[in-house]
Structure formats: structure tokens, C-alpha cells
Design a protein around this nucleic acid. Structure first.
Length: 610
RNA sequence: GGCUUCGUAGCUUAAUUGGAUAGAGCACCUGACUACGGAUCAGGAGGUUGCAGGUUCGAGUCCUGCCGAAGUCACCA
């Protein structure tokens, strides 16, 4: 029995019987009654008063009186255009029984593939990746819970000029050092050479700027009033491509890679594997994994067949210079290139091919890309093209476009060194959680490994909750200090509610707990808690539909908050009657179950003690 | 400039998708420990939801116009 639909149906029946007014019961608005009014659920009457030529008070009285005669409603009150209903005690205990956490039946026909993380192999993961990963992982859990078969994947950008820069810097300046020999995490090790390349390039560029050649270019090429510094800033790309020694060597390396040169491939493999070692450590630290990985080195040539296909169908057209385009202006977009005049493909082409390739691999019903909102236009175009190509899954594609993560000081900029490194962040928050745990001293009698496990749960719980509680679409400000906070609207606050229940249950193991509560009269706090428990699946489905886990985080907080208050006001182990104790044990077990499941949806584990 | 997104307390943010007096947390002030765990609870103060119109019984939410911020508009990835 679901209570919302039951009320809707009852009201619809009364409207039809008493007023001969037909209404789709699903459209009747039923909400939990606000705290400051008496009642459990509220029916909004406004939508009917015009059609029924009555006023809210009359209508409310008529519906209320009828419902009371049906015995499952014990009281009603009309306030403004709202009808507040109080449910019978027996209904509440029945409703509590229906609270369950079993995942919805798995339907193998519904398969979703979710892509997240998708880093480049030239530098370590940062705060932006963390938001991406946590969102992706949370969506995976949520879709599993509502019965989907989920495939976790990522695309690793393991090729291109960026990794060649790291490779070249290592070759020129690395002196055969390795992550092992320098005791450096592999992704950080390679990242250092990427940074080194850029600083060497900078040096080279600066000294070149003094040359006669450069001065001539500046004088002839500058715009009016443009300073040398300004000019050379905008000229950097051209310099890299046409004058730089380092640039030339990096590009040569890319060509050699594309030609399959064994030495280059060997170095490339070696360095990428260092990076993967590092990534895998970070993923393990965050508690996430993948079912399958796509590497760009294997997919970057895909999509060319679909160009031929599109040309045949007349969706694409060929320019006089041989380049291939699609015109999306009738859909409010621009013209987009798909094949350069030299026949090489672009990012878009590759994404088309990868989508088709994945469909062949998995025959999914839906596909989700967790990628920053800066690429919104790209995906809009990609989805439109796939639709025009007639791909069967084309209307089940979703770009989970999350907002960038800013710092209180502004944007993260790698050039200015303000990027928050993922590993540093996790280490910092672990330290903070450890310090707090030591101060509290609750864990001292546990073996060290167990203490460590709990500390990790708390630290990661804090971090994950902090990031996931914000609506995915919104740009968010990440305040490192606040993310270390373990009090207030945080993961540890929710964990603490669970720990309190576990503590009671441990004590109850030594006691005999009564199990009959048939005659127990529920308090308002208990009704409120049950009403909250009943909202779990609705919350989850909404999160799934919107690809936004923030509602689940806020729900978990809300439930924890209500429990903390209840715990404070009402005694469980020393309840005033056997019925009260019996009922309260059932209630807190359900609360613990739902809290644990809700947090699992966010990738957060619950400790038994903290 | 075109298109897209976003402006809610000092700060970080909610609002059951159009419903009641906009709800929390942090910070600030006051109170609650002979305890089922104080990483907690109760209270105070803090709001013209960027501004101005419009639609509606009802607007933080929908429409229009301003103001402000961000993103995007490559034969780059």
C-alpha cells in the first residue's frame, strides 16, 4: 500500500460521487503536512474550486467528512485552500511494515552504460575529477537500486600531443628515473614531466623573444598599441607549432607514435602504465571501479565508416576541399566538421564511432556521459548527429553536465598552481578525521586496522557528502576547510545517527526486547519519521530521472536530523511501556536500514562505531 | 555579438518540479551532560529569493525586458 496514491484515489472517488467531477487521481496534489499545522498529509483544494463552483472551506468539509466516515482518517482541518488529514494509528503501523530496502526487481531488459572520470594521462586527478567520479559512481548505485543493469566505463585519453610532451621531457631530462626509484606515485611522476616540459618551453620561448627574428615578427605582426608581452601571449601557439625546438620534437614524437615506431610506443606504454598505477590507487582510495575501459588510442580512428554512411544518406556533405560537414542550422546549431580536408577525423567523429562501437559491445538502452558542462554544446551536437544517423538508442542519451568546481579564491587554474590535487585532498581529510577520532577517544579499544577503516569511512563520508549534496548542474564552491568539517550538514552527522542506532541495538542484544506493539499510540515525531521513510523510493527515482544524487544526500540528512531529535526526546531502551519499546525497535531498525542504503547510493559506507 | 546556464541570510546551500509564514548548515549569541554516545539537542539573531513588469486563486520556480556572473560558438583534444 502506498499512502499518497491511496489518498489521491479516495479524494478522486469523492469528487466523482458528490460532484460528478472526473479527475485523474494522479494529478491531485498530496504532500506531507507542514510542521506548523496539525495533520499528516495535505490535499491541495485550489485546483477544483473553480470547476465545482464552490469555495475551499465547503469543499474541504465535504471531502473531510466523507473520509472520516471511512475510518482510516481520524481528523481533518481545512486551512485556506488546504485540507489537512490525520491518519489513523493503525494505518501508520501498517505503513511502517511496508518500508523495505530490497532493490527493485532487476529487469535485464533495462541496461544503462555510465561513463565517468575519463582523465587524460598527462597529469594526476584533481578536484574536478572527484566531482565527476562521485557523481558517476552515485548514479551507478542509484540505477542499480531501481533495477537497471549498469555498466561502468570510462574513456582514457591516452594519446595525443599532451602525453608526447611528458614523454619528451622525460627523455630529455628524466635521466632514466622511475616512480619506483623516486618513490613517487606514477601519475604524479608523469605529471611532473608535463609541468617540466611547459616550463622548459617557457624558458625557450622567452629567450627566443629576444632574437631579431622574434622582434621582426612582433613589429610586423602586432596590432596597434599592443605591447610585446601581450603580443607574445597570443602568439604562443604559433611559436610552438612553427619555431619551437621542443614543439618540433614533441610533434615529431606524435608522428612517430602514429606511425607505430617501436621505441616511441615502448616509452608511451611505459609512461602510461605508470599513470594507470597511480590512477588505480586513487580510484581504490575513493572506493570506485569500472567494468570496462575504452582507450582513445584504440578508438580515435573510429567513426570514419559512419561518415561514409552519413554521406550516402545525405545527412553529411562534402566541401570542395574534400572536408566533410553536417549542417545543423535547422536545429538551431551550427555547421560542424566531421572530416578534415586531409581526411583525418576530429573529436566529434571519434565520439560517433565510440558510441556505435559501445552499442555493438553492450546493446544498452540508455547511455550517460558524466562530463563537465563546458562540453554541453559538443554533446548536443553529438546526440543530434546520432539521431540523424538513426541510431536505435539516440533518444536515450544523456549528458550529465555538472558545473565546474571553484575555490573560495576563484577558478582552479593549473597554470597558476591553484588546482586541488585529488590525492592531497584525500590525505588531508584523512588526517583531519584521524585527529578528531583521537580527540574523542571512542575507538581506542579497537584493533588499529579497524580504527583505520572507520576513520576512512568518516573522512570519505565527509568529502563525498560535501560534494554530492550540491545539485549536480550547479557550479559549486569548494571550501577545503568546510569540507573537513565533521559537524552540521555533513556525512559524519548522518553516520552518527546510524552509529547511535547500532549502539542501542548492541545493548539490546543483552536484553529481551518485546515484539508486540498493536495497541501503541504513535507520537507525532514517530509519524513524521515513518512519513520520511516512505519517501525513500520516490526520492531515489527522482534522483535517477534527473541524474542528480543531491536529493538523496539531502534526504539522508533530513532523516538523520529527525532521528537525532527523536533520540533526544524519547527513550528507547527505557521506554515507558512494552508496546512503546517494541514499536521503537522496529522503527529504529528501519531508520538504520534506510540511512545505510541512502548513503550507499552516495558511495558512503556506514561505520558501526565512530 | 549569437546561443546556453546560473543569481536565495555574511558564507555554503534546500525548497516534494506552480502550493501554506522560503527550510537547513557554517560562523555569531544563549541554554541542555548523575548519558539508549554531546560528531548531539533546544532557542536567538540573520531574507524585498539580482531588478522591473506579466501570467495564475497562488511564483524562488513559468513568460518578457534589463543588470551581473559563467560556459560555448576551431580543419584543438
Amino acid at each position: 500500500m502506498e499512502i499518497g496514491p491511496k489518498i489521491q484515489a479516495a479524494v478522486a472517488a469523492i469528487l466523482e460521487e458528490k460532484y460528478q467531477y472526473q479527475v485523474d487521481s494522479g494529478t491531485i496534489v498530496v504532500t506531507p503536512t507542514k510542521r506548523e499545522f496539525s495533520g499528516d498529509f495535505t490535499v491541495v483544494l485550489f485546483p477544483f474550486i473553480k470547476a465545482l463552483r464552490t469555495n475551499p472551506v465547503q469543499l474541504g468539509e465535504a471531502i473531510g467528512a466523507d473520509l472520516i466516515s471511512q475510518s482510516w482518517i481520524t481528523a481533518y482541518e481545512v486551512k485556506g485552500g488546504f485540507l489537512n488529514l490525520t491518519l489513523a494509528n493503525s494505518i501508520w503501523t501498517e505503513l511502517l511494515d511496508t518500508v523495505n530496502i530490497a532493490a527493485r526487481t532487476l529487469d535485464p531488459a533495462r541496461k544503462i552504460i555510465i561513463e565517468y572520470s575519463s582523465p587524460n594521462t598527462n597529469k594526476p586527478l584533481h578536484l574536478g575529477h572527484i566531482r565527476n567520479i562521485l557523481l558517476g559512481w552515485s548514479c551507478v548505485q542509484i540505477y542499480k537500486a531501481i533495477g537497471y543493469q549498469v555498466i561502468k566505463t570510462q574513456v582514457i585519453n591516452d594519446r595525443g600531443i599532451a602525453i608526447c610532451k611528458s614523454m619528451l621531457a622525460w627523455k630529455l631530462f628524466g635521466e632514466e628515473k622511475t616512480p619506483a626509484s623516486t618513490r613517487t606515485k606514477g601519475d604524479h611522476f608523469v605529471g611532473e614531466y608535463y609541468v617540466l616540459f611547459n616550463s622548459k618551453l617557457d624558458e625557450e620561448y622567452k629567450s627566443w623573444q629576444q632574437s631579431d627574428e622574434a622582434q621582426t615578427i612582433y613589429i610586423t605582426g602586432k596590432k596597434e598599441e599592443q605591447t610585446a608581452a601581450d603580443f607574445f601571449k597570443t602568439y604562443a601557439n604559433t611559436y610552438f607549432n612553427e619555431y619551437s625546438q621542443l614543439g618540433r620534437q614533441a610533434k615529431e614524437m606524435l608522428l612517430k607514435w602514429e606511425a607505430g615506431d617501436p621505441d616511441t610506443l615502448e616509452l608511451w606504454n611505459r609512461m602510461n602504465n605508470w599513470v594507470y598505477d597511480g590512477f588505480n590507487k586513487t580510484y581504490a582510495e575513493l572506493g570506485v571501479d569500472f567494468d570496462t575501459i575504452y582507450y582513445e588510442s584504440e578508438t580515435y580512428l573510429l567513426g570514419k565508416e559512419s561518415v561514409d554512411q552519413g554521406l550516402e544518406k545525405g545527412i553529411f556533405y562534402r566541401n570542395s576541399d574534400g572536408s566533410v560537414w553536417i549542417d545543423l542550422e535547422d536545429a538551431g546549431m551550427d555547421k560542424k566538421i566531421l572530416l578534415r580536408s586531409d581526411g583525418t577525423s576530429v573529436y566529434m567523429t571519434q565520439d560517433i564511432g565510440t558510441a556505435q562501437h559501445r552499442y555493438q559491445d553492450y546493446h544498452f538502452d540508455r547511455m550517460v556521459y558524466v562530463v563537465g558542462d563546458e562540453q554541453e554544446y559538443h554533446f548536443k551536437v553529438l546526440f543530434e548527429i546520432l539521431k540523424r544517423l538513426g541510431e536505435p538508442y539516440a533518444d536515450q542519451l544523456f549528458h550529465l553536465a555538472y558545473g565546474m568546481v571553484d575555490l573560495p579564491t576563484g577558478k582552479m587554474k593549473s597554470r597558476e598552481g591553484t588546482v586541488v590535487d585529488a590525492d592531497d585532498l584525500v590525505a588531508e581529510i584523512l588526517g583531519e578525521a584521524r585527529k578528531a577520532a583521537e580527540e574523542r577517544g571512542e575507538l581506542v579499544d579497537l584493533p588499529p586496522q579497524e580504527q583505520e577503516k572507520i576513520i576512512r569511512n568518516i573522512a570519505l563520508g565527509a568529502l563525498k557528502f560535501f560534494i554530492l549534496k550540491v545539485n549536480a548542474k550547479k557550479r559549486m564552491v569548494f571550501n577545503p576547510e568546510e569540507s573537513l568539517d565533521l559537524q552540521g550538514q555533513t556525512g559524519p552527522y548522518v553516520q552518527n545517527a546510524y552509529v547511535r542506532i547500532r549502539s542501542i541495538l548492541r545493548k539490546a542484544d543483552q536484553m529481551t526486547i518485546p515484539s508486540v506493539y498493536a495497541g501503541y499510540q504513535l507520537g507525532t515525531e514517530e509519524r513524521e519519521l515513518i512519513a520520511l521513510l516512505l519517501q525513500y523510493w520516490e526520492t531515489l527515482e527522482q534522483a535517477a530521472n534527473n541524474f542528480d544524487p543531491s536529493g538523496v544526500a539531502n534526504y539522508a540528512y533530513q532523516l538523520a536530523k529527525s532521528f537525532h531529535r527523536y533520540y533526544h526526546d524519547v527513550s528507547i531502551l527505557r521506554a515507558e511501556s512494552e508496546e512503546a519499546m517494541a514499536f521503537r525497535f522496529v522503527l529504529i531498525r528501519k531508520i538504520a536500514m534506510v540511512l545505510e542504503l541512502a548513503m550507499e547510493m552516495l558511495g558512503i559506507e556506514m561505520p558501526d562505531r565512530m
